[in-house]
Each structure stands twice: as structure tokens, then as C-alpha cells.
Amino acid sequence: MPTVIVEVMPKEVLLDPAGKATARALQRFGDGEITDVRIGKRFEITLNTDVTPELLEHIGELARDVLSNQVIEDVTSIHVAD
């Protein structure tokens, strides 16, 4: 069964408090090579049918309308898993 992977990230220009706090924590373990962390979400959507362009478009709509909040997030990737 094919799986479609959707990735959602906080909008680049907005503050990402979770990423910021995590970056600070990681920096304590390193030598300054880590400069930033941003935390997003990954959705793995399993289908019971072949992926068609129409279906992919439909998933894209769902990603924009349901899986993400377009005011503060962007859908950064929609692709079929290998």
C-alpha cells in the first residue's frame, strides 16, 4: 500500500519557540557547530489505492486545510514514500 508523506513546518519568518529551546539544549552538548533547530511535523498517510495526480492534489488540499494552519505553518513537502 502506498504511503504519502506530508511535511509541515512553522513559517520561516515566525518564531519557533520549540526549535529555539531545543537548539539551546543541543548547543550545550556541542562545540558551536549547531546554530539553529526548527521543529515541524511529518505525516505518513497510508492509502488503499494507487496514487494518482488527482489524489495527490486532494491530499495537498487536506494538508493545507487540515494538517496545517496556514496562518502560522507551511506545507513544505508532499511526496510518495519509496
Binding site: 519557540p17 520549540a18 526549535g19 529551546a21 531545543t22 539551546r24 539544549a25 521543529i39
Partner: peptide
């Protein structure tokens, strides 16, 4: 602690 943004307590534990 640390906003609990990663997992609750995770950063404090370190």
C-alpha cells in the same frame, strides 16, 4: 522546564 517543547522534562533531564 525549558518550555517543555521537545518532550516534557527531556531537556531538564540533561
Amino acid at each position: 522546564s525549558y518550555g517543555d517543547y521537545l518532550r516534557c522534562g527531556a531537556i531538564a533531564a540533561h
